[in-house]
Each structure stands twice: as C-alpha cells, then as structure tokens.
Design a binder for these strands. Structure first.
Length: 308
RNA sequence: GCCUUGGUAGCUCAGUUGGUAGAGCAAUGGACUGAAAAUCCAUGUGUCGGUGGUUCAAUUCCACCCCAAGGCA
C-alpha cells in the first residue's frame, strides 16, 4: 500500500503526515516542486528531518541553478518509494504539487520520451522568438488538430510542447495515455481541503509573516549572491520571484510581503481546482473540522484498508 | 456657523449633453501529459449617499438633509 497526502498550501499537510509517519514508523516522500531545491528553506516552509523526527525523501536534492522537471521528479520519487517499501514500510507521499502526485499515480507518457534539447525543440523556440506564436499555432492545427483545439493559443508553452511532440515522435500529443490509468491499485489518497476561505487566507498571512520573521530576505539575498538569478526556474517560486521589484528599488518590503500573500492565495486556489477535480479515489478531509482531522480515525481507516 | 470639493462594484476611479453604468486592481470559477509555487482561459446588478421636486423617464437637472476631506470664522 501507498499513502498520498495532498492539499493546498497552509492546510497542515506536513503536520498530519509527520504524525502519521511516526505512528506507522515510516518515511515521507515529498511531492513539492520547490522544496527539491537546496538553500530554499524559509520560503518553501521546509523543515529538517531532525525537527520533524521523520526521514523525508525528495527534499534538498538539487541546486537552485538547475532545471528540474516532473519526469526527473518521478524518477527519484519512484526510487524513494522502492527504497521505503524494501524496508517493509508504507510510503507516505506528501505535497502540494498536484502534477508530481499524478506522475506517481497514473501511467503518463510525458511526450513519449522526447529529448528536451533536441534540434526540433531549438528550432521551435527560435521561430517563436522571431515570429511569435501564430505560425506555430497554425502548424499545430495542421499536424495535431485535436491538441490545437484543446490548447489555447496564448498558452505558448503548451502550444510549443505539443508541436515538439508531433514533430519529433510523429505521434500527436493528444494521443498520449489517458490520465485515468492508475499505476497500482493499493493507493490511499487523502486531500486536505478547507471549507472556510477566510480562515485559510488568515493562515496564509501568518505563514508569510513567519517567513519574514525567520529571515526570508536574508535567504533570498544569499541565493542571489551565490549566483542564482531571477530568470532561473527555482526563482519562479512564490516567496522568491516577488523580491525582484525590491532589489530594483521599485517596491517596498511591504509591497513584497503583500504580493507574496496574494500570490500564495491564488496558488492555493489553483491547487484547489486541481485536487477537487482530478482524483476520483480521493478522500477529503476538512481541515477546519477537528473531527475530520483526528489521527486515530485516519489510522483506523488505513488498517481497515489493509484488511481489505 | 459659513464656503469649497467629493460620496458610483470589495478598493481606486471613469461616465451618462436626462433613456438605470464601465475600467484597472482585488475576488471567484476552470484547464493542466518533460518549466506546474509554472503556464493559460473565463466571469462585472451595483438601493450610482438619503428624501422630495421637475419630467413620459433622474444616477445625471433642482431643493433640502446626511457623511467625508480641506478652507474661513
């Protein structure tokens, strides 16, 4: 069996997973696209294994100067899962990056093994930089009309990717495996959700305040001075990208703080729509309802599941 | 007490030479197959401060009142 705990930011995933991991004497696999980066701790609300008292996989794995993709994630996370299971333990995957969670749950093709640095890819990017998206979109309409139909023209990143896939593999993007084929049938998925938007927003605010207290500014400064730049993938994370204006002298510290709060709120909303609509097997736990959150109840459910 | 300028969407404001109104931001919903904390899409009814008056018709014009900011006493 494998347990997944997902949910929007500030829903208390880590706390719940930690208690559960201790009870089950097992380890955690993080599914978080930002905690993967070394040196990005405060802004990602990362905790050390020592503080949690639980071993975490897939945290602090790569330099903030490197790129990282879902497929990279899936590779390392699958190894982590195998490692935990080889100790006869039940892995607990915890995180807010829905895409990463899906990559472990469904059989996904991710572009049939295309190579991200192929000539075709370079050529497409070149064309986009020179002529914009129109011609590329028309080409996609010709080669893979189904995808063109589903992908909005303004979503240039997806338009280019779809085009790259048909052109390099000959198979349309729209023909990839459907995302309803589960990799295994012993999955237990809990989604932490909030029935009270105002309360969650308050939690987000105090979480951001806490990050500032812990020295978020210093963390960003030391990333910058170690050569990390704002156009790198890692710096697109919330809590980091917002500092650009401050270092340009265009915005105040309060501006930065408010922006981070706002971006976190809308991120949580995006997570909601993902988690609410993607998984039929999900069991929802309302974090505003203490009865729902009772750990005994969850442990009971897990052991019932094992008997089945 | 008097004068001036305001009162329109959650906020900042525009506008209607009289035919019940629209931008930005915020907010809300949605999509997601190798950048996903990314990327993208969709959504604007609000006693136009209140009460009367003029008018076929008032948020718009008139009168009085209330509130806010500034000025004079």
């Amino acid at each position: 069996m494998i347990i997944f705990i997902a949910g929007a930011t500030a829903s208390g995933k880590t706390a719940l997973a930690t208690i559960l991991a201790k009870q089950l004497n097992t380890s955690i696999v993080s599914a978080d696209s930002m905690q993967i980066y070394k040196g990005m701790d405060i802004g990602t609300a990362k905790e050390t294994d020592e503080i949690l008292g639980v071993r975490q996989y897939c945290v602090d794995m790569i330099s903030p100067k490197e790129n990282f993709t879902v497929v990279d994630y899936r590779n390392v996370a699958e190894k982590a899962i195998i490692d935990i299971e080889s100790q006869n333990k039940t892995p607990i995957v915890v995180g807010g990056t829905g895409y990463y969670i899906s990559s472990l749950m469904f059989e996904m093709s991710f572009g049939f093994g295309t190579n991200k640095s192929s000539d075709i890819r370079m050529d497409i990017e070149q064309q986009y930089n020179n002529n914009g998206i129109d011609a590329l979109y028309s080409e996609l309409e010709r080669l893979d009309p189904d995808s063109a139909n589903k992908i909005h023209k303004n979503n240039t990143r997806r338009v280019m990717r779809a085009l790259e896939i048909v052109k390099t593999t000959g198979i349309p993007y729209s023909k990839q495996d459907p995302t309803d084929k589960y990799i295994r049938d012993d999955i237990l998925l809990y989604i932490l959700s909030s029935s009270n938007r105002a309360k969650r927003n308050d939690r987000i605010s105090s979480r951001v305040e806490y990050m500032f207290q812990r020295g978020l500014q210093g963390e960003v400064e030391s990333l910058i001075s170690s050569g990390v730049e704002f156009d790198m993938q890692s710096m697109h994370g919330i809590g980091y990208k917002e500092w650009q204006g401050y270092f340009n002298g265009k915005s105040s510290l309060d501006d930065v703080k408010d922006l981070i709060k706002k971006n976190t709120r809308s991120y949580a909303k995006r997570q909601d729509t993902w988690f609410n609509n993607k998984y039929e097997i999900a069991k929802f736990i309302d974090v505003e309802d203490q009865n729902d959150l009772t750990i005994d109840k969850i442990v009971q459910e897990i052991s019932n599941y094992n008997i089945k």
